[in-house]
Design a protein around this nucleic acid. Structure first.
Lengths: 337, 337
DNA sequence: CAATAAAATGTTCACGTTAACATTTTGATT
DNA sequence: AATCAAAATGTTAACGTGAACATTTTATTG
């Protein structure tokens, strides 16, 4: 492996001069600079980042952490987040991807190792991690889950508003018996989305029936099982708000399995707008959550946070959007807006 | 930041003794070892991995590279690979994720920075990368694409066999007019899967019609468009082999859009067995490709390759499996095996 | 052309750790 | 107790780089 000292010898200068030349310091005369750069490229020199990091106290590494990678994080969620972050950070940053639940303790997570951390947070259980990162003074951006601590940069979609909007749409379509299939209980988003569902019903004075709430887990099978239970009720709902698209797909399958049709017998609405939502039969009406946009914003934020030290915390909401397709039926004449 | 020298001072020993104690060297007496470990944990000591890496010439980093992350890599593919690798490597390795197409040149990829590299290879264009990694003497495992070079560890599914099997099944079901929707042209797997399709037809002496081959791109929209073309043929096929599930889903949608039914009017078979395949309507018959298993094997291989230096190259095939669901209809009496 | 400031380059140290070699302590043997 | 081997610990250097300070070279000015 060739080092700056090797280059120094060949160029007949000190290794510091080489260092300066490679870092494009204005202190070095043009001719020598060129000579050094020439030799460096001829020798195929590449800097040793460990040495660099050691002396400069920077790691050139950004950590992208998920609450969990193996347990219940949907593929599209994981992939969209990585794609988003990846598209923003430049070649000279390393991107480390890991799940918080992979760690027994957080001792290996410190400012020497990470210049910045993006946390894709799904659960309150992440708070210990957040606390640790803050304590170690590592620049941090939290995505996807709202924090009380307003000093932390926080980028997320307004899930409550999104689900409120969705349920409101069902009501406008004439539905009154509206059920919900909830998300994974440990995930904050589940509660946000349920709250939007509740607030929409309350706003329109529609009574809330306990039996219209079914627990789910954000997985297709969970949506299927939950829907089966709803269908076996004495008075089944006419519409179901599913807390994510995966469960909506499972729910539709449960409906088909009973010989019923969507949206004729039961209307279904989802959340996320994953790629497949356009290709279900019927096409799924859902709330679009701009996951990739959120991670792009997150990556940009962490970069600016790392360069300037001005820590401008607070929430940044990316808007959700109701995507109307074919899985909801209007029960009344007044066509919905 | 607390270093081993700080600990040394407090323990009244040399920093080397501390280093040895922390690394559990047998040279250190039990009592001193305990004392040092105590102090270390009290001070909340965490090792500086940059220093460690610098002197030990190890990076504690495993690179997981994709041909591309942003351009045409399906979400389930990306996520399954990361999940698989992540589940195997231990806490003291960093997992680095990046797309090859993010790099202008590979100069930053060297053995100081990566202890090992797992390449999820989709395209011949990766060969330059592979060559570079080999030249730098970085342990390498290539997943998902067959290499000529038998000295490189290579783990993949036998796609040709899988698609042969699938098309054979269609034939056994009485189909003769069997079309194919091909994958992304630049990806090796597309050709493998097409070859399996062709060999199955040839084996059974079924004439190959040029118009029954449609180009696709591994995306749902591509499957849709390709299917539309097939349906507009004078003699449309009775069965379609789609080179992945995403396109199969798109194809089914195109069939529905024409008012036709799957499998009654046209049979559809996919490849991959993604999570959604169980939840399409009808449920998708497909070839299961054990992506997560492949990445788990890949991660295990890279770890063993990194520890022992015995480089045992060659291909390791993970078996595909035909998953029979409801999207293929038997045209004849003889029920298929 | 000397004096002096500015520019260019060199010397030495530091970063935090492990490793090679050196020294001291311990314990067994006579 | 003296001797010696083994065990435990210490000293110093090394990894590759950047930074502070020191020195030399160059350009500018009177």
């Amino acid at each position: 492996m060739v080092t700056i000292k090797d280059i120094a010898k060949l160029a007949n200068v000190s290794h510091t001069t080489v260092s300066r030349a490679l870092n494009n310091s204005p202190l070095i005369k043009e001719p020598t600079k060129r000579k050094i750069l020439d030799i460096a490229s001829q020798l195929n020199y590449t800097p040793n980042y460990n040495a660099k990091s050691l002396v400069m106290q920077k790691s050139h590494t950004i950590g992208l952490f998920f609450s969990t990678i193996s347990d219940g994080t949907s593929t599209s969620f994981l992939a969209d987040a990585i794609k988003g972050v990846n598209s923003v950070i430049s070649e000279d940053y390393n991107l480390f991807v890991r799940g918080i639940d992979d760690y027994e303790d957080f001792s290996s997570i410190n400012s020497k190792r990470y210049d910045g951390i993006i946390l894709m947070s799904q659960s309150d259980a992440d708070n210990a991690f957040i606390y640790h990162v803050r304590e170690k003074n590592i620049p941090l951006v939290v995505l996807n889950r709202q924090l009380e601590d307003r000093t932390i940069i926080n980028i997320l979609s307004n899930d409550r508003e999104g689900s409120h909007h969705a349920v409101n749409y069902l009501i406008k379509c004439g539905h009154q018996k509206i059920a919900i299939i909830e998300g994974k209980e440990e995930f904050k988003s589940s509660h946000e989305r349920k709250n939007g569902y509740l607030s929409a019903l309350i706003e329109k004075n529609i009574p809330i029936h306990h039996e219209y709430s079914e627990k789910g887990n954000y997985e297709m099978q969970g949506g299927y099982t939950a829907m089966e239970k709803l269908l076996s009720l004495e008075k089944p709902p006419t519409a179901v708000f599913c807390s994510n698209d995966d469960m909506a797909i499972g729910a539709m399958n449960a409906i088909f399995a009973k010989g019923l049709s969507v949206p004729h017998d039961i209307s279904v609405i989802g959340f996320d707008d994953i790629g497949f939502a356009k290709y279900t039969t019927p096409r799924l009406t859902t709330v679009k959550r701009p996951m990739e946009e959120i991670s792009i914003q997150g990556a940009k934020s962490i970069l600016s946070l790392m360069s300037q030290q001005e820590d401008q915390g607070g929430n940044h909401f990316e808007n959700t959007e109701l995507i109307i397709r074919d899985s909801v039926r209007a029960l009344n004449d007044s066509s919905p807006v």
